[in-house]
Design a protein around this nucleic acid. Structure first.
Lengths: 336, 336
DNA sequence: AGGCTGTGTGAGAACGATGTCACCACAGAT
DNA sequence: ATCTGTGGTGACATCGTTCTCACACAGCCT
């Protein structure tokens, strides 16, 4: 009962021209009389006809589709990246296929994408070169977002500069005992985690101060546990920089419950500019994930459409967002 | 240089059988000797071959692809719905094309989807019957999520029961002066907004109490403005129910800034179970958007794959999530 | 044996577009 | 008048699948 949709042949018949001519018009190819073109356009409009990317892709070899692989769409960060990506791809006339793969093992299983997309964007996946090569073999250009791999196209932020800047922000406020809360899985640290940690280290040693790092396994309890450890110290830090807003969130909760005023006794900084940060008035580092996605989209479009992009490895700047959770340290009573 | 990927013909040659046989094997069709089947599978594996949905869709008329149209992927709610949807579709062997359309006018422009997807899921879009019909004409079955339209398949939560339950929760705590903050655009109220308002009304009148409603135009300032209005009243409410967590968030901020303790002086409830709610310990109504998406995915899969779903119009229950922002009202000092 | 049935396989026509090539008319040059 | 482009158009092969049909061959019953 869903009577077959109109085909190009139907449009051709209606316009009284040949199939080829309709194709030319709809593709915007040159060599058609304006008069004929309008006639064809009108016919297509009346039949509310749209070309089948399926069929055209079959002969051109291009699907006008980009596959995006992401651990999950739900977390704020991924949603933002994919959102920006979607907009940019849409502008370039590309459709976006979204695949969520929880574990990297599933990833390889999801891969039979060949012929089904023109490129692949992997968001926040730590791929090995081997996996990348396999993916490229299956689906054309591969672009990494939020991670990097030598020799592969990637778009990511300058994590190092972000934490370095954040640390300097705290130093400039007058803090000296600045602790850093990081996350670390059994498998080690991701490249961006490492870069963030290094940024902190650099800024601290640059200032002649001893870095003070606490790492916990990632998850909801990360920030809380770390704060517990920090507060039990003989002289606790006056400022805490968290690897991410999620960690900062847990830290914030722990501080609140411990009755430690923020920023009165301890200044707290996050990293991400998560929605929650503005709700909690948390000073943080904006990594503009939507921009990340958008830039990636342009890059992918360039690659797919055969333009040579200026640079296949883009590093985006970050920006400090000052809010209420950081302030100059309280004067120490012990000083004369 | 990206040497053309293997085609079915290549697999056939390698396995020493005909094209048809390969097709049969890879489709899982019956009537193939186990021995031949294994041979074909092996050949396909070696060539790391995957069927082109493009080509197979061309002849079957099915694309194994579902188009999802959503205002934006960024907000928590949409991301959750689409995430659930994606998982369910993936289980059903369907790929998900995501389109973000900010305005409904763009929507119609995005529509040339015919032949490019088997079904269309519209998330939180208030479509007219005409637009639905047009969409159905272009892309097969249409399923609405979070909104409803008589005669169209839809999946949504029981907004009415949600606010009614929330109101009763506050009533049970002993509140009587319960205000409701709603949002309303110039164009009127969406169906779900209306249902939420009605739920509140019903519970209040049921309890013999006078409803007290404040509506502001939606946006970040909605909750704040409303709280301003409520606090300026001669005897302010002891409890406030917000149409959504976003509104509640603004209300929470305004109360905090006004020095009104929550829940000490005023109990506050939201609706959605947004991430921020747990961060703020906000009592709210969980509408499980990911489940919403998941259920929609199953429904769409049924429709696409020709199974007759048990019901094309699903209403999901909601659940109160009690947290720290609601408590019994303070005893009134004026009572003897 | 002869005729059925059934089962595994292959040949070839779709599907709906694109791209190549041939054709036709008509312009201007010879 | 004939030749030669040239610009608009149509015929047809092609892309990689699925699907329909025909065929070969085995087994079983009369």
């Amino acid at each position: 009962m869903p009577n077959r949709p109109a085909s190009m042949r139907d449009v051709a018949r209606r316009a009284g021209v040949s199939l080829s001519t309709v194709s030319r018009v709809l593709r915007g190819a040159a060599g058609v009389t304006p008069e004929v073109r309008d006639k064809v356009r009108a016919a297509a409009e009346e039949l509310s006809y749209a070309v089948s990317r399926n069929a055209s892709g079959l002969v051109t070899g291009r699907t006008c589709r980009v596959a995006v692989v992401v651990p999950s769409l739900r977390p704020w960060y991924f949603a933002s990246v994919v959102s920006g990506l979607g907009h940019a791809l849409h502008e370039a006339g590309l459709d976006m296929l979204v695949h969520q793969v929880g574990h990297l093992e599933d990833w390889i299983h999801t891969l039979p994408l060949r012929h089904n997309s023109d490129a692949l964007v992997a968001v926040a996946l730590e791929l090995t070169e081997e996996q990348c090569a396999h993916a490229a073999d299956m689906a054309g250009p591969v672009v990494l977002v939020g991670e990097r791999l030598p020799g592969r196209a990637s778009v990511h932020i300058d994590d190092h500069a972000g934490t370095a800047g954040a640390t300097r922000h705290l130093l400039n406020l007058g803090h000296a005992r600045i602790a850093y809360i990081g996350s670390r899985t059994d498998g080690g640290m991701s490249l961006s985690s490492t870069a963030r940690l290094n940024g902190y280290h650099e800024a601290m040693t640059e200032a002649g101060l001893e870095p003070w790092t606490v790492t916990k396994s990632p998850g909801p309890g990360c920030g809380e546990l770390a704060v517990g450890e920090l507060l039990s110290h003989q002289s606790p830090p006056t400022a805490v920089l968290a690897e991410s807003d999620n960690v900062a969130l847990g830290a914030h909760r722990a501080l609140r419950r411990s009755g430690v005023p923020v920023p009165g006794a301890i200044s707290l900084m996050g990293f991400d500019d998560h929605d929650v940060s503005s709700a909690l008035d948390l000073t943080t580092v904006d990594q503009a994930p939507q921009t990340l996605g958008r830039v990636t989209g342009h890059l992918v479009a360039d690659l797919v459409q055969g333009r040579r992009p200026s640079d296949t490895c883009v590093e985006l700047p970050v920006q400090i967002v000052p809010r209420q959770s950081t302030a100059a340290p309280r004067k120490r009573r012990t000083s004369p």
